[in-house]
Amino acid sequence: MRRLGKWVVAVPMAILALATIYPLIFTANVAMKTRREYVLDRFSLTESLHWENIATAWNSVGMARYFANSLFVVAASVFLLLWLGSMAGFALSRLPFRGSKALFIGCLAALFIPFQVIMVPLSRVMADTGLIDTYPGLILAYVAQFLPFTVFLMTSYYRSVPKEIVDAARIDGNTVYGVYRRIMVPIGRPALLSVGILDALFCWNDVLIALLMMPSADHRTLMVGVTSLRGQYTDNIPTFASGVLIAAVPVLLVYLFLQRQIADGVTAGSTKG
């Protein structure tokens, strides 16, 4: 493209960038306003930072509780996903055994079953086993949902690890489990990081699975909490915006620092598939 052409394109792209970022800036600004300020002029920059809106959302609406619930559930789910996913990925990529190929294909097929398709029978299975409305139940639902993806990416990653490394470790007297622990886990760190961040985002951002698996109010995750804000604070927009901001900030931080890893995880499936 010619030099001038590039600038002609850059202008609409800049406008689009503004349209992408503005809704969040608007929300953050509203979160810092008083109700009066908001009603008088919703666009103006807030005159002073009213952190008390955040405090209200955090304390009296119960966002603190929901935040803690989400943190716990996401941490446990991601830990299990990475652990089970890396073991399976190691076995599927570097250990020849009967049925390995069929299991990998089965795992790929499971990747294409959306949650909506199995949510009715799954909630019945969870109810029958007494896991509904419990933390282990929700964690297990998340692990089941994102395990095929995790196994798939870990298998692809471990396929790029030279076989010689595994063989050498075996000759040195390591058992298969020793190879997993001493070689595959440390060597898989970049993939574990990038898959782990994506799994964490998926679990943190989910609302459907949490709504279905955790009906009672004090088991709510943060996203379910945000949906309940809407009904309670229709006339108090700044508090509503504060709640939204609380739920968005952790993701924003992750994005700012780990953007590359997120993009790597997202694109891994496209180039290998």
Binding site: L84, G85, M87, A88, F90, A91, L92, L95, F97, S100, L103, G106, C107, A110, I113, V117, I118, P121, L122, R124, V125, L140, A141, V143, A144, Q145, L147, P148, V151, T175, V176, Y177, Y180
Partner: peptide, 23 residues
């Protein structure tokens, strides 16, 4: 060992994804 390593993942996927699909 390979079966031990892969068993938990397979069990979860079969019990909580494939079985519910059929169900």
């Amino acid at each position: 060992a390979p079966y031990v390593l892969i068993a938990p993942a397979v069990l979860i996927i079969v019990a909580l994804r494939l079985y519910p699909l059929a169900l």
